[in-house]
Structure formats: C-alpha cells, structure tokens
Amino acid sequence: MPTLVGVYDSPQHVAETVTRLRGRGFAKLEVYSPAPFDEVEEAVDPKPSKVRYFTLIGGLLGVVTGYALTIWMSLDWPIVIGGKPYAAIPAYTVIAFELTILFGGVFTLIGLLVIGRLPSVKLDPAYSARFSGDEFGIAVEVPERDVAEVDGLMRSHHAKEVGIVPA
C-alpha cells in the first residue's frame, strides 16, 4: 500500500484531517510535528500515555528497595549505632525516598523509550527534515484505489502539499 503524506502549517488543520481520516477508516496513520500539540495527540489517540505506569512501578520498586536494602544490611551485621534500633526507620526513610525518585525517574525514561519506540536506527520513509522545522506531516497508508480520495480530503483541509511515498 502506498503512503500519502500531507504537509500542513497548523495543528488545528492536522487535527481535523486526522479526525476525518480516522472516521473514514484509515487507521494506519502517523503524524509528525515539530512540537507537542494537545489537539493533534487527542485526534490521533485520545487515551493518556502509558508512561505513568512505568513511573508508578519504578517509584514503588524504589521505596521497597530502599527499605529492604537498608534494613537487611543493618541486620546482616548488627551493630548498635547511636543507641538506635538496628532497623532505624526514620534514618532509612531518607534512603528510601531517594531511591523512590531514582527508580521512578529511570523507569520513566525507560517508559519513554518503550512507548516512543526509541531508539530506532532508521527514520520512517515518510519522515522529512521539514517536520523538525515549522511544518506538520500526516502520513497515512491507503490502498491504491483510495489515493485520489485521500489526496482530496487532505487538500480540502488546508494541506499545503500532498505526495506519495512508494511502498
């Protein structure tokens, strides 16, 4: 199937086009934009990003690790320090807190990589340096027979240019 690429100037026009395309059943589409825009992301996929689960799991893992590490190590070679119990929870909370942040942050980064499908060695064939400039692009896979229709749809929604990337 060939890929049609429409070039746009404004995020609203991109969002409108995407809504129309999805309404017509062209679901295999990718939007390239120079910056994040809520309306575009909303139109492509209204569900919130799953990065939050990574952050949550990382944070929980961090707090558990923090307490487990400190308590186990203190009990492994028990020495009384400053008259405190071996497992001195207030003191160890500092470590647990820091590890919560550390694991949460690292897992968030992993989440970005997994969900953003990064790193990738090759850029998409439809990608162009213009899309890291000022312009937006919608790349949509369409069957041969629908090319003319989608081309018209994009142009009627203020696409500056529409072109084909041969599959």
Binding site: E30, V31, Y32, S33, P34, A35, P36, F37, V40, E41, V44, D45, P48, S49, V51, R52, T108, L109, G111, L112, L113, I115, G116, R117, L118, P119, S120, V121, K122, L123, D124, Y127, F131, S132
Partner: peptide, 17 residues
C-alpha cells in the same frame, strides 16, 4: 537523538515523561 521523529505518539510520551 535515538531516531526521534516527532510522531504524535512520541510527543505524547515525551510530554508525560
């Protein structure tokens, strides 16, 4: 840049991150 393409999926994850 890790092959960043600025897709809406990437931007959404990026903003959240």
């Amino acid at each position: 840049a890790l092959g960043w393409r600025g897709t809406s999926r990437q931007w959404k994850a990026h903003t959240r991150t």
